[in-house]
Each structure stands twice: as structure tokens, then as C-alpha cells.
């Protein structure tokens, strides 16, 4: 079986990570920011799988499962907070939720 070189996998993961990073920085909607952060986390997970495959170890996949679990916990708290913010501000624009300055 022909295997894919590690570099390609890492480049793919890096590209995904950069896409997520850019969209966290430019998006103003809180939900989209949350989605972008998830993309970054999953890019890290992909990089772990690629690295695990390179060394033929299960560690990379174990880390991936940890990451998915953590991301789920994070999203559940995040969505609860977003609901709360929507109740208060009637908008999901992150500039509206920026009252603290200084």
C-alpha cells in the first residue's frame, strides 16, 4: 500500500489551522468565531493523527479522541453562554458584547 508523506498531512493540517485562525480574527458573529476555533482544534487533531501514523503509534489517535471530547465540552458551555448573551443583547455581533474598555 502506498502511504502519503507526512509533510503533505502536516501541510493540510497547517492550512486548515491558518483558515480557522484567519476566520476567528475577521468574523464578528460569535457563533462563527466558535466554529472557527473548532476548525483550529480539529486541525490540531488531524496533525496528531498524521504524526501518530508517521511513528506507527496509537498516541496520536488517543490525543485526537481527547481533543474531540474537550471540544464537545467546550462547545456546550460556549453555546449556553451565547444563548445567554443573545437574551441580553438581542444580537450575536461580538462588537456589541464589548462593554469593558480600558
Amino acid at each position: 500500500m502506498e502511504t502519503i508523506a507526512v509533510e503533505y498531512g502536516l501541510v493540510l493540517a497547517g492550512t486548515l489551522f491558518a483558515l480557522g485562525l484567519i476566520s476567528v480574527l475577521v468574523r464578528r458573529n460569535v457563533i462563527f468565531m466558535l466554529i472557527s476555533v473548532e476548525i483550529m482544534l480539529n486541525a490540531a487533531g488531524l496533525a496528531f493523527i498524521v504524526a501518530g501514523a508517521r511513528w506507527g503509534q496509537a498516541d496520536g489517535q488517543v490525543m485526537f479522541i481527547f481533543i474531540v471530547t474537550m471540544a464537545a465540552a467546550e462547545v456546550s458551555v460556549g453555546l449556553a453562554l451565547i444563548l445567554q448573551i443573545y437574551h441580553q443583547l438581542k444580537t450575536l455581533d461580538s462588537d456589541a458584547a464589548d462593554k469593558m474598555k480600558g
Binding site: 490540531a44 496528531f48 498524521v50
Partner: peptide
Amino acid sequence: LFGMALLYA
């Protein structure tokens, strides 16, 4: 995490 993954790789 990405940093860890790169070091692991």
C-alpha cells in the same frame, strides 16, 4: 495542541 502535534511529528 498544534505545537504538541508538530513536536510529536
